[in-house]
């Protein structure tokens, strides 16, 4: 009886694993198979000369260039906002916050980490509406609001990776600087942060990976199907994930659909590369090997 249960469990386990991998491979396979042939030179710049497009001399209408530029600008702005806030919050929670204050703050960040991204986008939209009332006609959904909302979305990832990294620094290392007479802030800056740099870098890459794929936030806060290359913080913009979503329902001809698959393949490749990098950084830290 026990033997039969054991054999059954093994069969069930292997079947489940195979089924899950087959399902994921099916979806990824569809993207790779149909996106591969779209990876042509014209994919990004269309009929425009690449140099003209890069120097913004000419607009690209039939390529992914505006969406890629939009995503790049969005990521740069998002991380500029999120990394300082995430570092500060992570350091404070790990090194200063105690007792009830710490419990309340970590509850709030846990809720933030669990919030659906569309709710964060909705908050961004609410902010836009309020700003619109204060400055009529000047502020609408735009790159800046999207970046603010996305920064807020990935904040808990950054906070958690900084906090965890700091809290797991070995005691022996933690005591060296105070023993030499350094104060708390100097210890953090000169010893603790350098010791967990790889984990923090891994956390940042993970956060970029989370921000780059998010569609729900940006569709509420300013991403549109055609805006050209982003020209101002207060303008609407294009982005890769939104482009992919838009094409899935609105493609007009097979060429556009082909470009959608190629865009999906590009986004997939970016996310996989970033995830692998984050994985390497967070597992390969020699300082973290305890005796």
């Amino acid at each position: 009886m026990r033997r039969a249960l054991g054999t059954l469990t093994i069969a069930f386990s292997f079947a489940a694993t195979l089924l899950l991998f087959a399902a994921v491979l099916f979806f990824v396979g569809v993207i790779v198979y149909r996106g591969w042939s779209g990876l042509a030179p014209g994919l990004i710049f269309g009929d425009t000369r690449p140099l003209d497009a890069l120097l913004l001399r000419r607009q690209v209408f039939d390529g992914l260039f505006p969406a890629m530029a939009g995503t790049l600008a969005l990521m740069a702005l998002t991380m500029t906002l999120a990394v300082p806030a995430g570092l500060a919050t992570g350091i404070y929670l790990a090194e200063y916050a105690r007792g009830r204050g710490k419990a309340l703050l970590s509850l709030l960040f846990d809720i933030l980490a669990g919030l659906p991204s569309i709710v964060v986008g909705l908050a961004g939209l609410a902010l836009t509406i309020i700003l619109h009332r204060i400055f009529p006609g000047r502020i609408g959904p735009c790159l800046l609001i999207s970046a603010l909302a996305l920064a807020f979305l990935v904040l808990p990832y950054l906070v958690r990776s900084v906090q965890l990294a700091l809290e797991s620094v070995p005691r022996t290392l933690r005591l060296t600087a105070p023993a030499l007479g350094a104060d708390k802030l100097t210890t953090i800056r000169a010893v603790l942060l350098p010791a967990c740099l790889p984990e923090i870098a891994g956390g940042i890459i993970l956060a970029v990976g989370r921000a780059i794929e998010d569609t729900a936030v940006i569709m509420l806060t300013g991403a549109v199907a055609s805006a050209g290359v982003p020209r101002s913080l207060l303008a609407q913009y294009e982005a890769l994930p939104f482009y992919i979503y838009y094409i899935s329902g609105q493609y007009a001809d097979p060429e556009e659909l082909q470009r959608g698959f190629a865009a999906a393949l590009l986004l997939l490749a970016m996310c996989v590369v970033m995830l692998l990098a984050a994985q390497l950084l967070s597992t390969g830290n020699p300082l973290r090997r305890r005796p």
Partner: peptide
């Protein structure tokens, strides 16, 4: 880490 929109698209 596979983007949600990619599952949807496929």
């Amino acid at each position: 880490g596979i983007p949600t929109v990619i599952y949807g698209f496929a």
